Amino acid sequence: MRKWKRVETADGPRFRSAVAAHEAALLQSLAQSLLGMLEERESSAPADELEAITGMRTGNSTPPDDETMKRLLPNFFRPQTEHPAGSTAAESLNGALRSLHEPEIINAKRDAAQTLLDTLPRDGGKFELSEDDAHAWAATVNDMRLALGTMLGISSDGPDALPAEHPMAGHLDVYHWLTVLQEYLVLGLMGKNR
């Protein structure tokens, strides 16, 4: 992956870069996996009889069981203190907010991932993004990093490396590569890497 080049045009900024064929295949695979996880979560939502009447779609009111999906779809509200008995008010608020907003959040994540897939050259090569497309890429790459980082157990304490025999050792390199890709793109969006 080359750095992103921001080019000012009459139609607004454009963002140019290039990917190798193996990088394009990796991004396609990660984006399709992300779409699959979102589809699975969305399909687990209970049927809503009022949707036909109100036009408002609702989703799950409970957080995902899977740690990766919990990271992608976190609670909206965290109680100020962690009480051993739990916080009924916080749980109730989170359930209501999740039910109302999770479908929109999933749609936004799905649209961003699809934009990445639609604008990524299938076999690698040079490409150019509009500003909206670049924002979609940044959001999707962030979601891929969050998902992969959760699977790898990455926190502020690491790990910076995994033993070569670890079954996920190669995935840590992918995580670092996504971090660099995202950083360069964000700098481009900020106009800091011309």
Rank of each mutant, 00 (worst) to 15 (best):
M1C: 05
W4H: 02
R6M: 07
T9D: 04
T9P: 02
A10V: 09
P13H: 04
P13C: 09
R14T: 12
F15V: 01
R16S: 12
R16K: 10
A18P: 00
V19Y: 05
V19G: 03
A20S: 15
A20N: 08
A24C: 06
A25S: 15
L27D: 00
S29T: 08
L30M: 07
Q32E: 14
Q32L: 09
L34I: 07
G36V: 02
L38D: 03
L38P: 04
E40C: 00
R41G: 02
R41S: 10
R41A: 11
E42C: 00
S44G: 10
A45I: 03
P46R: 06
P46A: 14
P46D: 02
D48G: 05
E49R: 11
L50H: 02
L50E: 13
T54E: 01
M56R: 11
R57Y: 01
N60Y: 00
S61E: 12
P64D: 07
P64H: 03
D66R: 11
D66I: 03
E67I: 11
E67V: 12
T68N: 02
M69N: 09
R71V: 10
L72C: 04
L72T: 02
L73E: 05
P74R: 05
F76G: 12
F77C: 02
E82Q: 12
H83C: 06
P84I: 06
A85N: 06
E91G: 10
E91L: 13
L93F: 14
L93E: 06
L93Q: 13
G95I: 05
S99E: 11
E102A: 07
P103H: 06
E104W: 07
E104A: 13
A108L: 08
K109N: 08
R110W: 00
A112W: 01
A112V: 02
A113S: 11
A113I: 04
A113P: 03
A113Q: 02
Q114L: 14
T115A: 13
P121A: 08
P121K: 10
P121R: 05
R122Y: 02
G124A: 03
G125H: 04
F127P: 03
S130K: 08
E131W: 01
E131T: 13
W137A: 01
A139G: 01
T140D: 10
V141I: 15
N142G: 04
N142I: 00
D143Q: 09
M144A: 07
M144G: 08
A147N: 09
A147C: 04
L148R: 04
T150M: 11
L152Y: 05
L152P: 01
G153V: 03
I154S: 07
S155Q: 04
S156K: 09
D160Y: 09
A161E: 13
A161H: 11
P163S: 07
A164K: 12
H166L: 10
H166M: 11
H166Q: 09
H166N: 15
P167L: 06
P167H: 13
A169Q: 15
A169L: 06
L172M: 08
L172E: 03
D173S: 15
V174N: 06
Y175A: 09
Y175M: 02
W177R: 14
V180N: 14
V180I: 13
L181T: 13
L181G: 01
Q182E: 12
V186P: 00
L187I: 00
L187A: 02
G188T: 06
L189Y: 10
L189C: 11
G191N: 06
G191C: 08
K192D: 13
N193C: 10
R194D: 08
